[in-house]
Amino acid sequence: MHVRLGLGDLCLASIQLKKHNLRPYSGVLDWMASIDLSQVNELLENRFIGFLEYDNLRVIGYADDFICLSDDGYNLVSNHDFDGEKNTLNYLGGYAEVMEKYERRIQRFLSEMENAKRILFVRTEGTLEDAAVLQDVLSRIVKHDFSILLINHTYVPGIVEKSWPLDKVCSIEFPNIDKWEGNHDLWKEVLSGIRLRK
């Protein structure tokens, strides 16, 4: 299976894909917060038009050595793009450079949608309703076969598979306690049978 990068909601999916050698490069949403899956659906539906558009950006403050920004158009938050050396709370001197990086990632993503024979999308957090829309949106974007692994963190003791009526979506639940460091074995179990093919 050709594994595409995660679809948010934070960096967790991307980190786990990289840890299991299933992420060959950074994707568009890998290092952003995209809490609302419905907004991600809209972003994909629009083929990323308006993504990080300057007029939609709002400075939140500092995040370590970076300027934290909100893309209010799609309800996204960038924590890792605008470094404090080139950018300030009042001036985004590195904006053009950041957008060049994301334009490359967007074009690579759209190329994968056209050319990859099988794609696995991995997303953390999302409702059944939003997952149904995601499946519908991707069915119109992806030329070949795809699957969606959606992991919600809830009050469960281990892996719980949900029987959602969606052909392309595998929905499972992980424990919500320390989801960043406490579920490594569960991620390993879920991703162990997946291989990346070039």
Score class of each variant (00 low, 15 high):
residue 1 M to P: 07
residue 2 H to Y: 13
residue 3 V to W: 03
residue 6 G to N: 09
residue 8 G to V: 02
residue 9 D to V: 03
residue 18 K to G: 04
residue 20 H to T: 02
residue 21 N to H: 12
residue 22 L to D: 07
residue 22 L to A: 06
residue 24 P to A: 10
residue 24 P to S: 11
residue 26 S to W: 07
residue 27 G to K: 00
residue 29 L to E: 05
residue 30 D to Y: 09
residue 37 L to M: 06
residue 40 V to E: 00
residue 41 N to K: 02
residue 43 L to Q: 06
residue 45 E to C: 11
residue 47 R to W: 07
residue 49 I to C: 11
residue 59 V to P: 00
residue 59 V to Y: 05
residue 60 I to W: 03
residue 65 D to C: 03
residue 65 D to H: 12
residue 68 C to E: 08
residue 69 L to Y: 03
residue 71 D to Y: 02
residue 71 D to A: 09
residue 76 L to C: 05
residue 84 G to M: 05
residue 86 K to H: 15
residue 87 N to R: 08
residue 90 N to M: 06
residue 91 Y to R: 14
residue 93 G to Q: 12
residue 94 G to I: 04
residue 96 A to T: 13
residue 97 E to F: 08
residue 100 E to Q: 13
residue 101 K to M: 11
residue 103 E to G: 04
residue 104 R to S: 02
residue 105 R to E: 04
residue 107 Q to S: 12
residue 108 R to E: 14
residue 109 F to N: 01
residue 111 S to N: 14
residue 111 S to L: 14
residue 111 S to V: 01
residue 113 M to E: 07
residue 119 I to D: 00
residue 119 I to N: 03
residue 120 L to P: 04
residue 121 F to M: 03
residue 123 R to N: 09
residue 124 T to Y: 08
residue 127 T to V: 10
residue 129 E to A: 12
residue 131 A to Y: 06
residue 132 A to D: 02
residue 135 Q to N: 11
residue 136 D to S: 15
residue 140 R to V: 01
residue 143 K to S: 13
residue 147 S to L: 09
residue 147 S to I: 00
residue 149 L to Y: 03
residue 150 L to N: 06
residue 151 I to T: 03
residue 152 N to D: 15
residue 154 T to I: 08
residue 155 Y to L: 14
residue 160 V to H: 08
residue 161 E to S: 10
residue 165 P to G: 11
residue 169 V to D: 00
residue 170 C to S: 14
residue 173 E to Q: 13
residue 175 P to D: 10
residue 176 N to G: 10
residue 179 K to S: 14
residue 181 E to L: 10
residue 182 G to W: 06
residue 183 N to H: 06
residue 183 N to F: 02
residue 184 H to W: 11
residue 185 D to K: 14
residue 185 D to Q: 11
residue 186 L to T: 05
residue 187 W to M: 10
residue 188 K to W: 01
residue 189 E to C: 09
residue 190 V to M: 09
residue 192 S to C: 11
residue 193 G to C: 07
residue 197 R to P: 04
residue 198 K to Q: 05
